[in-house]
Design a protein around this nucleic acid. Structure first.
Lengths: 253, 253
DNA sequence: GACGCGCCTTGACTTAGATCAATTGTTGAA
DNA sequence: TTCAACAATTGATCTAAGTCAAGGCGCGTC
């Protein structure tokens, strides 16, 4: 039980069993033998301190990264220097899937807290996938899930108001934290107002104002980065009921 | 040469060799033997007439679809009935990748013209992937490319003005048509102003006005759905130079 | 404990794009 | 040939969110 994956596994199992996102964690549903096999390729872990980049745009693509603990953001800069955050990533989530096609990274990944990641060398993973059908399946589910999630973000960015966006964002955070055994209603935001805005296609002032508005409406309490969700159902109603940012295609009438 | 894939292949090869999108077409870079093998699982083609759905949200996920010819859109409806178009799909592109994770479709696919698709039963594809490493690699590139493209759309939706959005959209269309041996500067739009707006996060009136504006600026000529791009460089400058909607992560400074 | 620095909030004003509405051109059916 | 349905354009307003600006608060540092 001292191999890297074996050490990571209990946490992953907890995450995966507690949430409906079976496809979240790579080793879910594998036999012990297969896990050992997978384990042989995850040979390294890496610490990333807050503010440090894990990879940057144009970096050669070598490996995927599974967040062991901590909190990352991935972002791109467009030509006028405007930052668009593509996602926030917490324990059990995989980063780098967008880089496979171009062979180098298409976004930057930076740690918002002190983090630890598992390094998954991609060419070795692909070799193993051929031998472990259940792992291949799991991997495809993960990639597919990212696509579906991104479509949810496109919906959010394209059709929602500031209030709806923020509500959807907070519900999504809440669910993901809850799935990890943390409180879904009382937590600390790891990102600034500006970063929330960049993710949601809003300016930081609008994010701030919208927080105040939601607070006035009695849906939550915020004090700087400390958040208490006091009316989850109300937030969900605002966001259009079914957490657009998390399960994009499944909340239709 | 009468197997379905063999029939599809010449067109695909043309597309793939003419564009830089090696990862676009599934059978690129395969040996003849492998192609035969892949061919055995692509057993059916299907005609879809304009206005007809290929699949809908919640439909059981069974297969991926490769567009043989024609033009599709995929879209979702949110709770207030607002439509968000996730993408437009032309010859050689694959639809349905978002459905793998949930086992049912998360968006709707509808033909904007009379179309024909190849049906790729997914469980059989996965079986074959294990035996043909180059095909697996190709498949992963395709999924990854979709993720990178979606991130580009998030950038577009989150940070661009109406003018920039439309310019980026038209450049992307132009490039994809060009890669297929069609004119990159003179073509007919397969979608309405409303559909363009839904894709770009704009209202149809704004799309119409923005077309007029670009025309006044001498960048293009539009007459209903007939388009002539007269100043591609100018459009690219507007869009932020490097075609955000097509190669999202690679156009940074 | 005072100082400076980020981060956040709030207010006043501006604006890009939405909304509402009228008009035209196009297509296709009666 | 007329009429209805639809798609697109254009104008006149409205509004959500952006911009600019002025504090305030918490935190680490000297």
């Amino acid at each position: 039980m001292s191999t890297p994956l074996a050490r990571l596994l209990p946490a992953l199992k907890t995450i995966c069993s507690q949430c409906s996102l079976r496809e979240l964690c790579l080793p879910m549903g594998l036999e012990n033998e297969d896990i050992k096999r997978l384990d042989t390729i995850i040979d390294r872990r890496q610490r990333v301190t807050a503010g440090q980049h894990l990879y940057r745009v144009r970096d050669q693509f070598e490996a995927l990264y599974a967040v062991r603990n901590g909190f990352f953001k991935t972002y791109e800069l467009n030509n006028d220097g405007h930052e668009q955050i593509n996602g926030f990533h917490m324990t059990g989530e995989i980063m780098g899937l967008d880089a496979i096609s171009a062979d180098n990274h298409t976004c930057n990944a930076i740690a918002l807290e002190d983090c630890e990641v598992c390094i998954i060398p991609f060419h070795r993973l692909e070799q193993v996938l051929g031998d472990i059908p259940s792992l291949m399946r799991q991997f495809h589910r993960m990639m597919s899930r990212e696509i579906a999630t991104d479509h949810g973000m496109m919906m959010l960015l394209g059709t929602m108001t500031a209030e709806e966006k923020l509500a959807a964002f907070l519900i999504n955070l809440s669910q993901r934290l809850g799935a990890r055994g943390l409180s879904p209603s009382v937590f600390r935001l790891s990102m600034s107002r500006e970063e929330i805005g960049s993710y949601l296609g809003l300016k930081l002032e609008t994010v701030s104002r919208t927080f105040s508005k939601l607070q006035d409406e009695g849906l939550l309490r915020v004090d700087r980065r400390n958040l208490v969700i006091s009316d989850l159902a109300g937030l969900q109603r605002l966001a259009g009921c079914a957490t657009p940012a998390s399960r994009p295609g499944s909340n239709r009438t």
